[in-house]
């Protein structure tokens, strides 16, 4: 008699656990689908009561940084502030270039930080160096993700601007997870490098296929034909 009662209890307990797991997974899947659905939809104009958005700018290196600086030159700084610049730990040039840009803004404004907003500079471990094999990339990518998580918890940006290479992938993945868990809603913009004419880079392809970028811009019409959800914007350089 006692045995059958305890049996009965344990069965219902395991049923309950199963139900709970199924429930959580369902809620989670629905939430992911909702986030995917709401991403790639413009921000509602009514929410523009907030006049400026904190912006994370992921600088690539060399040519990537030059393209990003060209974009930053025409963006309205009073809307995209404060600005957080992140570059690979092995790349000293990119943050310097960003600093030159920010200093010129301050000079234009007579040193008034209120208008253009403040700028912050950070370095991040890179997931893959040019020429590194794909196998050893796994370990370095894990390290890069942990570091990116730490930085993202500190910054929690509302807008993310990136244009490759791999440095931006951990950041975009974490931003997406933040959206799913309701930690922070962000808008992710990816500008594919002008060097990509026929095929998307691995970073862009990932963000495109997983629909993690709200908008993905390409600089050559051939790419727009191949990837219809991308936006063709002409050359930045």
């Amino acid at each position: 008699m006692e045995n059958s009662i305890s049996n009965c209890l344990s069965v219902s307990a395991s049923n309950l656990t199963a139900l709970l797991v199924i429930g959580i997974v369902t809620v989670f899947v629905i939430r992911v689908l909702y986030v995917l659905h709401r991403s790639a939809r413009p921000r509602h104009p009514n929410s523009s009561s907030q006049q400026h958005l904190s912006t994370l700018i992921v600088l690539g290196s060399g040519g990537h940084t030059a393209e990003m600086i060209n974009l930053l030159n025409v963006l309205q700084k009073e809307r995209f502030k404060p600005r957080y610049y992140i570059a690979a730990a092995t790349d000293n040039m990119s943050l310097q270039k960003a600093q030159v840009l920010e200093n010129s803004l301050l000079d234009d404004q007579g040193g008034r930080e209120k208008v253009v907003g403040s700028a912050h500079y950070m370095q991040i471990y890179r997931s893959r160096e040019v020429g590194q094999s794909y196998l050893t990339s796994v370990g370095t990518t894990l390290l890069a993700i942990a570091h990116a998580l730490w930085l993202m918890i500190k910054i929690r940006p509302q807008v993310i601007l990136c244009n490759g290479p791999g440095t931006c992938i951990p950041i975009c993945v974490i931003a997406f997870i933040f959206k799913v868990f309701g930690i922070r809603w962000s808008y992710i913009f990816y500008v594919e490098s002008i060097a990509r004419v026929k095929r998307l880079s691995l970073s862009a392809l990932l963000l495109y296929k997983l629909r993690m970028a709200d908008q993905l811009f390409v600089q050559w019409p051939q790419l727009k034909n191949k990837y219809p959800r991308a936006h063709y914007v002409g050359r930045l350089m």
């Binding site: 921000r43 523009s48 963006l75 809307r79 914007v233």
Partner: peptide, 21 residues
């Protein structure tokens, strides 16, 4: 002929609901 970053900037601004300049 050098390119122009304004089209990207315009799309980003539109997407974020910022008014046209």
């Amino acid at each position: 002929q050098p390119g122009d970053a304004k089209p990207v900037a315009r799309l980003i601004n539109n997407f974020l609901g910022f008014p046209e300049e």
